[in-house]
C-alpha cells in the first residue's frame, strides 16, 4: 500500500500545485491538500511543505508561515516520526519553525537564481535515500530562489555535519566554491533533523519528475520516501 501524503498550502505558496501533480499524476499516490488554517490529519505518512512566497515572505523567508496554525500539527507529526520534506520556501519554513537547524538568507549573488544545479547526496540510506540513492550519487535538480544561502553558526557546524543531506557540486560530484550558487555554508543544499525524518532542501525535486520537462532525478527522493513508508508498514 502506498503512502498517504499531505501537501501544506499557505497563502503565497506557489509550488503546491506542482507538488500535488508530481505526487498524484507521476508517483500516483493519495494526496490531501491542507490549508494553513487547518491541521494535518492523523493518518498521514508524508508531509510536503512546498515552495513559494508564503505570506509574501514579507518578514523573513518562511518566518510568518512558521507561526501559522498548521505548523503545530506538522511539529506533532515530525516528533512522531512522520516524514516531512520542505522544499525551497518549505525549507525556509522548517528552519524558521525550528524543525531544522540553521537559517536561509539572501543569496550572496544578491540575485534570484533559477537554473539546474548538481547535488551530491550525503545521505547514508534512510527515508530520503533508501537503497535507490547511494551516498555520493550526483543528482541534477533545478533551483529557483533568492534566499537560499544556508547558514549555521560555526559552533553548530560539527553537530549538523552528520545531518547534511545534499551539497552543491559540479557534474562530477566535486564540491567546489564554483558549484555553490548562493553562498551556502559548506555548499549545503539540504539538511535533515537529528532524527532523520525531516528533510529541507532548496532544489526542487518535484520539478524534476518528467523527462519532457528536463529530468527525473527528483523522483528518486520522492520514491525513496514511498519505499520507506512501505517498508515501515511491512515491519
Amino acid at each position: 500500500m502506498s503512502a498517504r501524503w499531505a501537501v501544506v498550502i499557505f497563502p503565497g505558496s506557489n509550488c503546491d500545485r506542482d507538488f500535488v501533480r508530481a505526487l498524484r499524476d507521476v508517483l500516483r499516490v493519495e494526496v490531501v491538500e491542507v490549508w494553513h488554517k487547518d491541521s494535518v490529519p492523523e493518518a498521514i505518512d508524508c508531509i510536503a511543505i512546498p515552495g513559494g512566497f508564503s505570506y509574501g515572505d514579507y518578514l523573513r523567508a518562511g518566518a510568518l508561515a512558521a507561526m501559522s496554525p498548521v505548523m503545530a500539527s506538522v511539529r506533532t507529526h515530525a516528533e512522531r516520526g512522520t516524514l516531512v520534506i520542505g522544499v525551497c520556501n518549505g525549507f525556509q519554513v522548517l528552519c524558521e519553525a525550528g524543525l531544522l537547524p540553521g537559517v536561509l538568507t539572501k543569496n550572496d549573488t544578491l540575485r534570484f537564481r533559477c537554473h539546474d544545479v548538481y547535488l551530491r547526496s550525503e545521505l547514508n540510506g534512510g527515508p530520503f535515500a533508501g537503497t535507490g540513492l547511494p551516498q555520493g550519487e550526483v543528482l541534477r535538480l533545478p533551483i529557483a530562489h533568492g534566499f537560499g544561502n544556508y547558514y549555521v553558526p560555526p559552533e553548530q557546524r560539527d553537530a549538523i555535519e552528520r545531518h547534511v543531506a545534499f551539497r552543491y557540486c559540479d557534474p562530477l560530484g566535486d564540491v567546489s566554491r564554483r558549484a555553490n550558487p548562493n553562498g551556502s555554508v559548506d555548499n549545503i543544499a539540504g539538511v535533515t533533523n537529528a532524527a532523520g525524518n525531516v528533510l529541507g532542501m532548496m532544489p526542487h525535486p518535484e520539478r524534476a519528475v518528467e523527462a519532457l520537462l528536463g529530468g527525473t532525478d527528483g523522483l528518486r527522493i520522492l520514491q525513496a520516501m514511498q519505499d520507506w513508508v512501505a517498508g515501515v508498514r511491512a515491519g
Binding site: 518578514l59 523573513r60 518566518a63 507561526m67 524558521e96 540553521g102 537559517v103 538568507t105 547558514y151 549555521v152 553558526p153
Partner: peptide, 8 residues
C-alpha cells in the same frame, strides 16, 4: 522570536 532570527 518573531521580528528577528537570532541565528543571523
Amino acid at each position: 522570536e518573531t521580528l528577528s532570527n537570532p541565528l543571523l
